[in-house]
Structure formats: structure tokens, C-alpha cells
């Protein structure tokens, strides 16, 4: 496998500026970043350093003001809304801090959601959902509503939902932020397992304990990469 094949994400000179009431806020300033396939990267830094903005750009929820972004060999910085939605659905799996499960849908339906948007046939969808729920140990709660689950269980369902579409990368935003330490560790263990099985993970966290689970830690400060620490090395 050559260098290009290994690179899943490449950001070059990415800047993000927010304009509000004639005030410019530079959230990101000249970010250069590469994430390889199968890598577990942690993005760390204090509040307001641009972690979430970076994650939203990586997840195609937002576009950079400047710079280029290549995902899986394709430039995605200036795609249409529909095209971005399609790539988000196919290539990205999100795990949010507050789980973001839809309260009126069952566990099964929540996990099924990204596959439904992909217009995947129902039978295939069901098999895939059952498979990922078993993997995260939540198959027995398929018919429950999120409100009937504990925080840790909800996050495991969120992980299952992110995995269901077999995305190129899992983007995780403070996945343990709303959990007690025991549940947090369980979720981190799950992410570590997924990584060991070959998944590419990019996680935003401000907790150094969890950041250390990653192969590489990227420290942000004032919208710039302050340093990169590679554990694997």
C-alpha cells in the first residue's frame, strides 16, 4: 500500500472564519492534517480552540473558508449540499457527546436511520442493524426507546448507528462527556476494539486519559495545531 492509498483525510491550509455583526472570528487558521486509514487520532485542546469546528469540517457538516479537504481521495471542500449529505452518509459515522438519538424512534430504528437514507433494501438493512447491535451488546434492547436506556447504553447505540453504514471514518465528539466514568471507560473500550478491528477513528476530547487511547494526539490552540504526539511511534 503506497502513501496515497493510506491517507484517508488530508487538510491543507484550512481556515475557518465566522462573521457575526461585522466581527470576524478565526476558528481555524491554516490547519494541515492527515489521517491515515485504520488510524486512531485524538484532537485535544482547551475550550474554544476550534476542536468542534475542525470536527464539523471533517464530518462535512461545515465547509472551510479557505484551504482544501480531500476525503478518501476526493476533494470535498466545495461540494453541493446534496453531495455532502450523500458522502456524509456513506463515508462518515458520527458519535456525539449527547448521543443525539431520536427520542421517538426505537433503538433499532435509530440505528437503521443512516441505512434508510442510503435507500438500502430492507432485508439488508435489518441484517446490518442486528449485526452492529450485537457487536455493541445492545441487540436485546432493539425495541426500546432511548429514554428507556442508561446514558452508557444510549452511547453504545449511537456507536452502533455510526458503525451501521460501514463508514470510512468514525468521528466522535467528546463521546464520554455525558457519561459516568464506568460507562465512559466502556465506550472507550468499544472504540478501541473497533480501532483494533481496522476502523479509522477521529475523536475530539479534552480528557487526557481518553486522548491517550489514540495512536496520535493533535493538540489545538487558538485554531492552530500546537503539536502532534504520536503514541504508536
Amino acid at each position: 500500500m503506497n502513501q496515497t492509498d493510506q491517507t484517508l483525510i488530508r487538510l491543507e491550509g484550512v481556515r475557518k472564519v465566522f462573521f457575526t455583526d461585522e466581527v470576524e472570528t478565526h476558528a481555524l487558521s491554516g490547519i494541515h492534517l492527515e489521517i491515515n486509514r485504520g488510524e486512531f487520532v485524538s484532537i485535544a485542546g482547551p475550550s474554544g480552540c476550534g476542536k468542534s469546528t475542525l470536527l464539523s469540517i471533517l464530518g462535512l457538516l461545515d465547509s472551510p473558508t479557505e484551504g482544501s479537504y480531500t476525503l478518501n481521495g476526493k476533494s470535498v471542500a466545495s461540494l453541493s449540499l446534496a453531495e455532502r449529505a450523500r458522502i456524509r452518509n456513506l463515508e462518515v459515522g458520527f458519535i456525539f457527546q449527547s448521543f443525539n438519538l431520536i427520542g421517538d424512534l426505537t433503538v433499532f430504528e435509530n440505528v437503521e436511520l443512516p441505512l434508510a437514507y442510503r435507500r438500502m433494501p430492507q432485508r439488508e438493512r435489518r441484517e446490518r442493524v442486528r449485526e452492529v447491535l450485537e457487536r455493541v451488546g445492545m441487540a436485546h434492547r432493539s425495541n426500546h426507546l432511548p429514554s428507556q436506556l442508561s446514558g452508557g447504553q444510549q452511547q453504545r447505540v449511537a456507536v452502533a448507528r455510526a458503525l451501521a453504514g460501514r463508514p470510512a471514518i468514525l468521528l466522535s465528539d467528546e463521546p464520554t462527556g455525558n457519561l459516568d466514568s464506568k460507562s465512559g471507560e466502556a465506550v472507550m473500550g468499544l472504540l478501541a476494539d473497533l480501532h483494533r478491528d481496522g476502523a479509522t477513528v477521529c475523536m475530539v476530547t479534552h480528557d487526557p486519559r481518553y486522548a491517550r487511547c489514540a495512536d496520535r494526539i493533535i493538540n489545538l490552540f487558538d485554531g492552530r495545531v500546537l503539536e502532534e504526539v504520536s503514541h504508536a511511534a
Binding site: N89, F94, N100
Partner: peptide, 16 residues
């Protein structure tokens, strides 16, 4: 609004 945002984040298009 939040639910719709989540759906969009998961890949729902405007038509969806």
C-alpha cells in the same frame, strides 16, 4: 430542529 439536524448529519438530504 435538533432531530432534523441529527438526521441531516446522518446523511438525510433536503428531499428526505
Amino acid at each position: 430542529t435538533r432531530e432534523i439536524g441529527i438526521r441531516s448529519a446522518l446523511g438525510a438530504t433536503r428531499t428526505d
